[in-house]
Write a protein that binds this DNA or RNA. Sequence first.
DNA 1: TCTTGCCTTGACGTCGGCGGCAAGGTTTAG
DNA 2: CTAAACCTTGCCGCCGACGTCAAGGCAAGA
Lengths: 127, 127
Amino acid sequence: MLIGELAERAGTSTRALRYYETHGLLRAARSANGYRVYDDADLRVVREIRTLLGIGFALDDIRPFVDCLRAGHPSGDVCPDSVAVLRRKIAEVDAGIDRMRAVRDRLHAQLTVAIESRESTCSSRTC
Amino acid sequence: MLIGELAERAGTSTRALRYYETHGLLRAARSANGYRVYDDADLRVVREIRTLLGIGFALDDIRPFVDCLRAGHPSGDVCPDSVAVLRRKIAEVDAGIDRMRAVRDRLHAQLTVAIESRESTCSSRTC
DNA sequence: TCTTGCCTTGACGTCGGCGGCAAGGTTTAG
DNA sequence: CTAAACCTTGCCGCCGACGTCAAGGCAAGA
């Protein structure tokens, strides 16, 4: 499998795959003419990368999962480093949710005050 | 008030203030020597900008609030454009919270499976 | 006068995950 | 023979909110 086919099967671009390689997430054998050659294990790796990127992971966070897959584990989640990242990410997401809820409440309060202010100012005349 | 003092009183940098100016959020009178000169109304504007940036607004979203303040309103929230941005932002934040909750649940499930997998694999031998 | 400490404009650097283009080599089909 | 469709490396562009110089002007105290 060459890079174009891998990209298509993984639903991404060749540019992204080369990018993952330069960042140590993907390795490729080379054919005689210098072309990158991949197998199904690489396809699984790329799918893992894409899934985690979609969840909001950075490439650095993804590396343990990829290493875990390449170590022969059927899932990238089961290795200690991956579990540690999962725990950290859950905490980060929880914190993010808390922040966003605070923001939401604040915006809602501002909106309420703004509308009340408009009503009291404009109730009896054109505004 | 010169730009350095405004920056200090608003808790930001002179670079940021010039940046706001180039993006139409801040205007400055000029003294004879070309220095930017500000008053307390500008301080209020900058504080509004900083508050909204802190909440996660982009500069483009903030412009209506600044215009509202400069139109003489005591709060930047009360003008129709500001209210529209507030409503939109609340919706965006709500959507963001939903996405993050979905991510959280997914990560939690992955973590659970990973831990169970490790326990079943390693329970009776060194791992 | 000299230094210190403001101020000015302009332009490039940062971060992350690529997109897009250039300039070439390879392989296959017609 | 040539065109099409792959592949290679390398480098600049993008987004947003600034940071960080660079090179110079202005003001005020010792």
